[in-house]
Design a protein around this nucleic acid. Structure first.
Lengths: 332, 332
DNA sequence: TTGAAAGCGGTACCAA
DNA sequence: TTGGTACCGCTTTCAA
């Protein structure tokens, strides 16, 4: 910047103003500066600018696992919307490890991101207090934290559970099992939806039909597989299963087919997440669509609003409406 | 930092030195400073540090599409390795758009990343000249650029094409088609491998059996679908197809099954990339494994070596050895 | 072992 | 409309 100023015999301040479209600059001077900027292919140092203004124009995103299509889509939505507004994105994966997530949060705080978007794997609010203490706005996505009142965007998971379970009931299933997750708010909600749907129709949800397993990363398929194996040993066998996620469902289907049973005739399956390849699977998988990309876009929008509004408003909560996509795995 | 210094009656310089483990600091002073840092939960501002040292400890990664599992895995590898070394990662998706990619590169340069890792969709070396002009080291992954001598890590794509095609030949296929890509170095290499394998066995590769299509993003499945439809109209029909990627193969398989034909009896299929769900597909898909995660780790390693070695060495090139994973789609 | 001063590359404020 | 000056938070150099 100084070079440009010197070359043109103006001050650095003038150059700076031109760069930011400050209005009180002579049009002639402006042209000359612009000209030289082009020539030198000059770009202002964002770090220096950040230091001076206190705004990095950087948003941090932390997800449990980028390999999971749900989070990849979410990321895409966030990314798209953010860049449209001139913000950069730092992404970190916590690998489903709370300790790792804490470190990543600290890293991002140290880099002074303007805001954070987090799909948290943590069980306590501790880290989030740290974020608040720094007055950095943040939005939780997908997963809520118990006892933490924060901005949140996710799926209406109770509804997701209800949709899936009612669909199975409508298709004639009478012994509906659930393979779900542990610790996660999403898992608890989907389970609640499952229970509610069964209760509403006068069926019960016997404990032996409910499997709650911690599913780490890509191990989800294996988890679904083993849980389903266990379910198939029960008497009577379930005739329908609502799975917490599509990877879980994929594993479950594998276990069923290996036993020589048919989907959906012997056991119908419904997953959640509606991955892109759902229809290409061995048996096309019925699933609850969560619109993860939209979720990402909303999160980006919300977080930027927070950044741009000085006033600290009440935490907002937003739930996207899930939709059932019926395919062969439940086509009775 | 100043606060800490003031509180303790020492200078900011002293605090700074403690932070960086500078050796000439009295152990007593060091303790006091460390103590206060803990109390205040103080973290140095990385941006300020970057400004002063000229190193941001940030690496930029640009991929065409995060939704594509190949790039998601690559990203995971990069991320893991980078953070292990205390580097942060900025990720951007170019959405397979060269113009977009240029902008992202400029953004990253403006943020003064220490290095770049790029899976480029560009057709010219222009942007890369800009990077070199800034003396920022970079590594190209997966895709090479014609006429650009740069550090590169990718698959041995010629070998990948050969492996897949020879596999089909061994399985007894005699009319082997290829659905490939356009513009990409990977596509050209896999095609070359396909041709070489056919030639080596005395078969020819008739033009009508070779479909080269631009595949944008998630449209890959649709591309594979339509290309396969066209192939099935030929007389005689191909009895084996090597597809550029697994999504392409997924689409192709869909077209075959819809026609009432059998895989692999009527047409055998081999894909490339070995996505995680390959074995769960309607017909488990044979594919060439590319070890994308390892590729990411190598890229991270290489780029950090470049950052840490002042000397500008000759561009290095590294090719990972692909491996065929045979499944039902080619089990004749 | 400690610290004063200068500077990294910009921006903000206010005076000219 | 322009520019001088101070400062953002940290590091580096060099003298005490």
């Amino acid at each position: 910047m100084k070079d440009i100023a010197r070359d043109l015999g103006v001050s650095a301040v003038t150059v700076s103003k031109v760069l930011r479209n400050h209005r009180d600059i002579g049009s002639e001077t402006r042209e000359r500066v612009l000209q030289r900027i082009k020539e030198l292919n000059y770009q202002p140092n964002q770090n220096a600018r950040a230091l001076a203004t206190g705004k990095t124009h950087l948003v941090g995103l932390i997800v449990p696992d980028l390999l999971h299509q749900f989070f990849a889509q979410l990321t895409k939505g966030v990314s798209r919307n953010l860049r449209k507004q001139g913000y950069g994105l730092i992404i970190a994966s916590s690998e489903e490890d709370p300790e790792f997530e804490k470190q990543e949060i600290d890293q991002m705080l140290a880099r002074h991101v303007d805001a954070l978007i987090i799909a948290s794997t943590q069980k306590t609010a501790q880290s989030f207090k740290r974020i608040s203490a720094r007055h950095i706005p943040y939005v939780l996505v997908d997963r809520k934290l118990e006892g933490l009142s924060a901005n949140f965007i996710g799926t209406d998971d109770v509804k997701a559970g209800t949709l899936a379970t009612e669909h199975l009931i409508e298709k004639g299933c009478r012994r509906i099992a659930h393979i779900g997750g542990d610790y996660l708010s999403t898992a608890a909600d989907r389970l609640a939806g499952y229970r509610a749907a069964l209760a509403a129709h006068g069926f019960d949800a016997p404990k032996k039909y409910i499997f709650l397993r911690t599913q780490l990363d890509d191990a989800a398929v294996a988890t679904g597989y083993s849980a389903m194996q266990a379910l198939l040993k029960l008497q009577p066998k379930p005739d329908g299963v609502f799975c917490f996620s599509d990877p879980i469902a994929t594993g479950a289907m594998q276990a069923i087919l290996e036993k020589g049973l048919c989907i959906p005739e012997d056991v119908a399956i419904v997953g959640c997440g509606n991955v892109l390849y759902a229809s290409a699977l061995r048996v096309p998988l019925s699933s609850v669509n969560q619109e993860s990309e939209t979720m990402g876009e909303c999160a980006a929008k919300m977080v930027l609003e927070l950044v741009n509004s000085r006033a600290k408003t009440e935490p907002r909560e937003m739930r996207l409406r899930p939709e059932l996509v019926a395919r062969a795995s439940s086509d009775l």
